[in-house]
């Protein structure tokens, strides 16, 4: 099994729901956004286009981050291909952050809070799971998968633009979409073979 995600750029309206669905699921600290949105604009008025491109960890089949990790904290699960960080082994060297071509990793350098008054009740409850001095990233919501749920970002997406499933199963929805709707990877030339695919916005 190889878990992956298809992001349909025709459906996506760039609402940032994925960024906050992720934040609400994981309670990450300021500046850490496992899921985020990149906005692009091209052309000359009035022939101009904008595009919103949601990004997250690409869960590469050939992850450079795992390769460079000196302690084995960054790993790829053999059973489903999920790339994750075992925080207890991470020494915070940030080699993985440098090696990731997709900017998907966040070093927890200081214990920042959102408000100037310190942690609020919610942050006290959630930040306990986030160690300082380690690198954090998207893990396709492993804890949700264990409970039979899909990742928080795809479960919530109000345009149903994120579809999660097994890329190795030719009958899965993700495989079908990639095959029939022209799915593509970001920066395939880098040779990391991402497990996140995109469907073109104009089709």
């Amino acid at each position: 099994m190889r878990l992956g995600m298809v992001i349909d750029l025709k459906r996506c309206i760039g609402c940032y729901g994925c960024q906050i669905a992720c934040k609400a699921e994981h309670g990450t600290r300021p500046g850490t956004t496992y899921a985020r949105v990149v906005k692009r604009e091209w052309g000359v008025y009035p022939n101009v286009k904008k595009l919103s491109i949601p990004v997250l960890c690409m869960h590469c089949a050939e992850p450079p981050c795992v390769e460079v990790c000196p302690t084995g904290a960054s790993q790829k699960r053999s059973e489903d291909g999920i790339v994750f960080v075992e925080s207890d082994f991470c020494v915070g060297c940030r080699a993985c952050v440098m090696s990731c071509p997709y900017g998907a990793r966040y070093f927890q350098d200081e214990q920042r809070d959102y408000f100037d008054t310190g942690e609020n009740e919610y942050e006290q409850a959630l930040y306990a799971a986030h160690q300082a001095g380690v690198v954090e990233k998207c893990d396709f919501c492993r804890h949700r998968l264990e409970q039979g749920q899909e990742p928080a970002c795809s479960a919530n997406c109000m345009c149903k633009a994120r579809i999660f499933g097994d890329l190795e199963d030719p009958n899965s929805e993700v495989s079908r979409l990639i095959r029939e709707e022209g799915g593509f990877q970001l920066n395939p030339e880098l040779g990391t073979d991402p497990s996140v695919y995109y469907l073109p916005p104009d089709r």
Binding site: Y16, G17, I20, E121, N156, M158
Partner: peptide
């Protein structure tokens, strides 16, 4: 999060709705 049992939203929320918790616990 969105309530899948509810036809208003069918379990999917916008960024604002997902962020409401920071209004509840806003120290200000």
């Amino acid at each position: 999060e969105g309530n899948p049992d509810n036809p208003i939203g069918r379990g999917r929320l916008c960024a604002r709705g997902l962020a409401g918790i920071q209004l509840l616990y806003d120290p200000h």
